[in-house]
Amino acid sequence: MRRVIGLVLLLLSVSLSAQALSWAYAFVVLDGRVYEVMDVAVLDDDLGEVVGEVKTMADDMDGSYYGDASNMYPIGTTYRKVNGEAIEDVLAVEDESGWKRAEYRHDAPFSMRDHLDKVAYGFVGLGLVVFVMYRFRRTR
């Protein structure tokens, strides 16, 4: 009986410990740089060209993210340059109420997934080159 009670208590404690992460602030990532999205509007006259978009979402459980990610904005949210500001310092982020200012805070943590995507593209390119060379030699 003690084992059953102990097992039930253990299972309850494990199942009750799962919770979602609470973020300190809304952020977006562009080219390995994390920008905090401020509650400051950017006027349409100050908007420059499109420089990127959210491509992945941060994990609410462990806080991990890779690539051009966000913890609050959905995939497809656009980033634009702010005229008169360096992209390394400030971005404009598309919001349902307009455009919000996002300021650089720190570099994103290292993620192997960022580099695996590049390696995969390299292998695809190498495979195409080998295929074209093979086809070219066969037709001669």
Rank of each mutant, 00 (worst) to 15 (best):
M1Y: 08
M1G: 15
M1S: 13
R2Y: 11
R3Q: 13
I5Y: 10
G6E: 14
L7G: 11
L7W: 14
V8K: 13
V8I: 15
V8W: 06
L10D: 07
L12Y: 08
S13M: 13
S15E: 09
S17W: 04
S17Q: 08
A18C: 08
A18K: 07
Q19T: 10
Y25N: 05
F27H: 07
V29I: 08
L30N: 04
D31C: 01
G32R: 05
G32E: 03
M38K: 15
M38Q: 15
D39G: 12
V40N: 13
L43I: 04
D44E: 13
D45I: 07
D45A: 15
D46F: 09
L47Y: 10
E49T: 11
G52H: 00
G52W: 00
E53D: 07
K55D: 05
G63C: 03
S64R: 06
Y65V: 00
Y66P: 00
G67L: 02
N71I: 01
Y73C: 00
P74E: 04
I75H: 00
I75M: 03
G76R: 01
T77G: 01
T78H: 06
R80M: 09
R80V: 01
G84K: 07
I87W: 01
E88H: 07
D89S: 09
L91H: 04
A92M: 07
A92L: 02
V93P: 00
E94L: 00
E94G: 00
D95P: 00
E96G: 10
S97K: 11
G98E: 06
G98R: 06
W99V: 02
W99A: 01
K100C: 05
A102M: 08
Y104M: 05
R105K: 14
H106V: 10
A108D: 07
P109N: 06
P109A: 05
F110P: 04
F110N: 06
S111W: 03
M112V: 15
M112I: 14
D114C: 09
D114Q: 09
H115T: 06
L116E: 14
D117T: 13
K118R: 15
K118M: 12
V119Y: 12
Y121N: 13
G122D: 11
F123P: 04
L126F: 14
G127F: 08
V130E: 09
V130W: 14
M133L: 14
Y134E: 14
R135A: 14
R138K: 15
